[in-house]
Design a protein around this nucleic acid. Structure first.
Lengths: 195, 195, 195, 195
DNA sequence: AATGAATGAGTCTTCATTCAT
DNA sequence: CATGAATGAAGACTCATTCAT
């Protein structure tokens, strides 16, 4: 409803199609595992057109795709915690949402940011970009923890705790091809107030 | 005749050099991020020599390297838990040992099995091999948990809990380039009260 | 209104900027060694703007740049010979002028016409354009030789002699990165005794 | 007669075919004017085979081709001067030999070393390689001049004089598509002893 | 007269693998 | 067991040009 586009606007998605295709492919097979031909084919974009939007080529596109994927993750976190009445509530909702995402992504996808940036060219730019994005996730969780009445220290700890479980859990879910790993994650939350 | 080697030593390290070089390189940059030329150069092994030891080429070598790395991990786990008097003790020792490994590996290495198998060709063989190795880690931890007086259910839970934290923690340590993340991991262990 | 330019000046240098940039770049790296992106960037001209002025694209621009560079050369020749009292005088002045040009161009530039036309697409148009320009140089020198009292035959020979030395000398100057080669050129002029 | 190959030898010309094809193509259209596809096609060599022999690719091959072409030139110089009884004799023979070469090369070829190295990537390696080769030509001519009874100073001057005329002359021959320019070159030789 | 996004054939290079020795 | 030359498909990237605005 709120997202209606003006009738005169044209669906001009070229750059965005590239970003989405890149995020999806890198997530599954890593930066080096995806060739440009395959990527451009998936995005239905012509070869040289990508260098118009991303002058530095594949690496530029990878950074953009990682940012885009990270923003999606931030939105999922917000949507899970916004209606929550306690940190544990929000965390549980988040785990279930991610479980659904995991299933819908084919039970094989890895973390889009890790796969794109950690398996990419190991330069400082990639590392720092990854660090910035991941710290953003923790900060976002921490914010919600604070909002839900945890002390600053508790909030920091709870946020890191959830982050660690999420990353480990997504990986184990991938190993077992089962989203239940993610659904069971809240069991392992330390979450002082509710224990 | 003049070249007699002590009976217990294995004087033919070509294959092993390949495996070690592969494990190290894949750990840092992923299966697809490492070319065979670079790998053979690092192992100081001549070009075609690799196909002698690993007839199926790069993928064969990757499987062997992942197995080798996993075996090292199993040994570290055993060394941490063997002298331990409680599960928490063992887990804490393990985290500290891994922190040291992380530092000595340059604060940048990822999980060797993940990087080798999850970022490799996404076929069933690779997936199942990864699953087998990772479940081996959990089983090994579970064994020590049982040995240290946890009930079967508790042991299973504690093992998964530690595994999740280890994986998430190693990744966050990589993000922050700080092994302290690993050293602080025991804080997040749930099992404390039951040991 | 506030931007009135003096009536004799031409305030629209876009086309000329393109020509100058092309001449300079081609001189250093040859027709095929310079990409349009780099050229347009050097000329601070927008991408498609060039096809407005040079409908046939790069080759049109190259022909124009070669002509422009050749015209400069003709002017230098005239400036050297106009005040001269003998052919040898004029030739010596010319060599010194070119030595200065060589130094100010970075001791690396080649002949702008050769680099643009001989290293370009090997079609008849390019060849004939180059031939026309080069013969123009010889004719110009010949004209001055005649004016300075050489017979028709002597003038022809002296012009070709100087042309040969100039071309060979510029090349050797480039090899040695020393403009002295050009300054010493008059030593090799045959015509001395007949002036 | 002197060049008979042992009957058991195999005509294994891969690397040499690459060098010859490169020298011929670069000579005509310059380093940047020749694509690898065309070059490999001309040499009847498969794509990746070239990187076996020339690990640094096109530039390595270009250096080798320039060296090979320069060696040919040195041989032509030697063959012209060896039987000569005076410097002017040798120079005249050389000019005639080059005129023949010019005709047989299609009246369009440029100097193989210039076209390969001066129109290539403008780095120090290329420049210095070109300088070394060209100074080699001059030194070779100088050697014959000395041998033919010119004083050290005269020999140096005569060698440079011939070099300058040769370079300028070959270029003008190309402009006029006429090898007569080369044949007439000796007219312009200063050559103290015989004037 | 001027713009810059779009195009896909072209560039050079690296890839994992095979083969004859 | 071991070698390194040979292979061509695929890699990422640049090219000169066109087009709608």
């Amino acid at each position: 409803m709120t997202d209606v586009t003006p009738p005169s606007s044209k669906p001009r998605p070229t750059k965005e199609r590239l970003i989405r295709a890149a995020a999806n492919l890198f997530r599954n097979r890593g930066y080096h595992g995806v060739g440009l031909n395959e990527l451009l084919n998936a995005a239905r974009a012509p070869k040289g057109s990508m260098y118009h939007h991303f002058p530095n080529g594949k690496s530029d596109l990878a950074l953009a795709a990682a940012t885009w994927a990270s923003d999606q993750m931030l939105r999922v976190i917000a949507e899970a915690f916004d209606p929550a009445e306690s940190f544990r509530d929000g965390a549980t909702t988040l785990c279930h949402k991610l479980a659904k995402l995991f299933d819908s992504a084919g039970k094989w996808s890895g973390c889009p940011v890790s796969a794109t940036l950690f398996e990419g060219p190991d330069n400082e730019e990639f590392h720092q970009h990854a660090a910035r994005l991941f710290e953003g996730w923790i900060t976002e969780i921490e914010y919600h923890a604070t909002r839900l009445d945890l002390s600053a220290d508790q909030a920091r700890l709870a946020a890191e705790n959830l982050y660690l479980l999420l990353h480990g859990g997504w990986q184990l879910a991938r190993v077992r091809r089962s989203s239940d790993v993610l659904r069971n994650l809240p069991e392992f939350l330390l979450c002082s107030e509710s224990s």
